Simulated scan of single mutants.
Amino acid sequence: MRIDYLLLNESVRGSQISEIEISEKLTEFFIICDEIIQYEDENIFYSLEVYNQVFNGSDFVSWLYSSDEETTEKQLLRLYLEKELILNEELYENLYNSGNSDDVGGIILLEKPLKFNKHITPIDSSDSCLHIRKQILMKSSNAEDFVKGISKTFPNLFLSRNVFKSIKHFNPITKHADELIKHLSALNDYAMECYSIYKQRGHKAALQVFKAKSKGLECSPEGDAKRVTKFLSFEFVDVDGEVRKVECSPHTKLYQTNSDDRIYFEWNDERVNGRPPILIGHIGDHPYDKK
Rank of each mutant, 00 (worst) to 15 (best):
H119V: 09
L184V: 09
K148H: 13
K165C: 05
L137K: 06
D124W: 02
L114D: 09
Q75M: 14
L137F: 07
L207Q: 04
V104P: 03
I132F: 06
T72Q: 12
I123T: 00
L91M: 15
M192S: 13
K182M: 11
F146E: 01
Y190A: 04
Y195K: 14
H176Q: 10
L157T: 01
G106M: 06
Y195L: 15
E179W: 09
N156M: 09
T121F: 09
A143N: 11
S160L: 08
T121C: 06
N142H: 13
F164Y: 09
D102C: 10
S185M: 05
E93P: 00
L114S: 12
E82N: 14
F158T: 02
K148Y: 09
S98N: 15
L64T: 05
D189P: 00
H169M: 11
S126E: 10
N171R: 09
L110S: 02
H169E: 13
S125H: 05
K175C: 02
E144Q: 13
K134I: 03
G202T: 12
V163D: 01
V104N: 02
V147P: 01
C129E: 01
Y190W: 10
N97T: 14
Q200P: 02
T72M: 12
V209N: 06
F146T: 03
T174M: 12
E193K: 14
E69C: 08
K134M: 13
I86W: 07
N188V: 01
E144P: 00
K112E: 13
A206Y: 03
I123L: 04
E89G: 03
D145R: 14
E179F: 06
F158Q: 05
N142F: 08
S126K: 14
W63A: 09
I108P: 00
N162Q: 13
I108T: 08
N142Q: 11
A186S: 12
G105P: 04
D124F: 07
K168S: 05
L137T: 02
N97K: 15
S196G: 06
K112T: 13
D178Y: 14
L109P: 00
S98H: 06
S125F: 03
I107V: 11
F170H: 00
S140V: 07
S140T: 11
S62W: 01
G106D: 00
I197G: 07
L81N: 00
S98F: 12
K168F: 07
N156K: 12
L79N: 14
H169Y: 15
D178P: 00
R161L: 15
S160F: 06
L114T: 13
C194H: 08
F116Y: 15
K168D: 06
A191T: 08
E82H: 12
I107M: 03
F146L: 03
F170M: 01
